[in-house]
């Protein structure tokens, strides 16, 4: 069977070219979907097979040369868990789907309400009252049907965390509030997976990546026992421009972690403030 799929991929590939004129062989969305149906496999697996034959699924053509074909295949073979599908998580889920991360676990027990409309990418007037998970599944499938989506309509807990995280190579902390994040950090550490965490209030925010052996959130927030459940966002709110830039930085970190690239914000934090355009990398160890 695999030889047949590979042969079909080669047969259906079409000549195309990058904007700079460099030619490549492309596989269209329509053909990926047709092969996925014919072989009863996720589109992701069709795309990985194509990439191994140096055929680029057209939907990822503008990801080049940020990634090589091999790296695109690696991303398609990877699984990521997004915990929280509000302001950060909705955008993270969408960006990872467009990037072509092959398996997405999406976790949230909440439904949309009107106060989410200012910033949560998955919240529209039509999705009000819907569960955040079902909106995420619909959005990811609408953008990229090749991706395997695993919905978890629940709040992740320390107990359920490791089984939800499963074989994910990275966990994205898109929770709201402060104290819940420490629970998620514990779960990610138990699952021995890196956690990419971002948080904001008003025009300020920060993002960091925590590996299981790192001290992590306590370096940013101090002792969790001394923390209120909500941070400064209770007063300053959550405007969308701060949310989206942080979600974007989280996706950048996910890609670096999955591809084992350098310059991950490990034991470091990007602190930003859009009011005066402060962007500073902070080393979290003195």
């Amino acid at each position: 069977m695999p030889e047949t799929l590979a042969a079909d991929v080669v047969r259906l590939a079409e000549p195309s070219s990058h904007p700079d004129g460099e030619p490549f062989r492309a596989l269209s969305v329509k053909n990926v979907q047709a092969l996925a149906e014919r072989y009863r496999i996720p589109g992701r697996d069709v795309e990985i097979t194509a990439l191994k034959s140096n055929i680029l699924p057209q939907r990822y053509s503008r990801n080049m040369k940020a990634f090589s074909l091999r790296q695109q295949a690696e991303l398609l073979g990877s699984s990521v868990t997004v915990v929280g599908l509000g302001g950060l998580g909705g955008t993270v889920a969408e960006l990872l789907a467009r990037t072509g991360v092959g398996t997405l676990h999406v976790v949230d027990g909440d439904r949309f309400e009107e106060s989410n409309l200012n910033r949560q990418a998955l919240c529209t007037e039509e999705t009000l009252e819907m569960t955040k998970v079902s909106a995420a599944v619909n959005r990811i499938r609408a953008i990229n049907s090749s991706i395997v989506v695993s919905p978890h309509e629940t709040y992740l807990t320390e107990e359920t965390g490791p089984s939800i995280i499963g074989d994910s190579l990275a966990v994205v902390d898109c929770l709201g509030g402060v104290t819940e994040r420490f629970m998620l950090e514990k779960a990610a550490k138990q699952a021995a997976r890196p956690l990419i965490s971002a948080a904001m209030a008003g025009l300020s925010g920060h993002v960091t990546t925590i590996f299981p052996e790192d001290r992590g959130l306590e370096l940013i927030y101090g002792n969790p026992r001394d923390l209120p459940s909500d941070g400064a966002e209770a007063v300053l709110g959550c405007p969308p421009q701060t949310m989206n830039i942080l979600a974007s930085c989280q996706c950048s970190e996910v890609v670096k972690v999955l591809l084992k690239q350098e310059n991950v914000l490990r034991n470091r934090m990007l602190a930003l403030d859009l009011e005066d355009y402060t962007f500073e990398i902070v080393s979290l160890y003195p």
């Binding site: 929280g84 902390d173 948080a199 904001m200 300020s204 923390l227 400064a232 500073e280 902070v282 979290l284």
Partner: peptide
């Protein structure tokens, strides 16, 4: 990152963050 006991010197750039949790 520095602790509260660290002395400051001329030209230092100091940043101070509260707890933020919005997401």
């Amino acid at each position: 990152k520095q602790e509260r006991t660290v002395p400051l010197k001329a030209g230092d750039r100091v940043g101070i963050f509260p707890a933020v949790g919005g997401g």
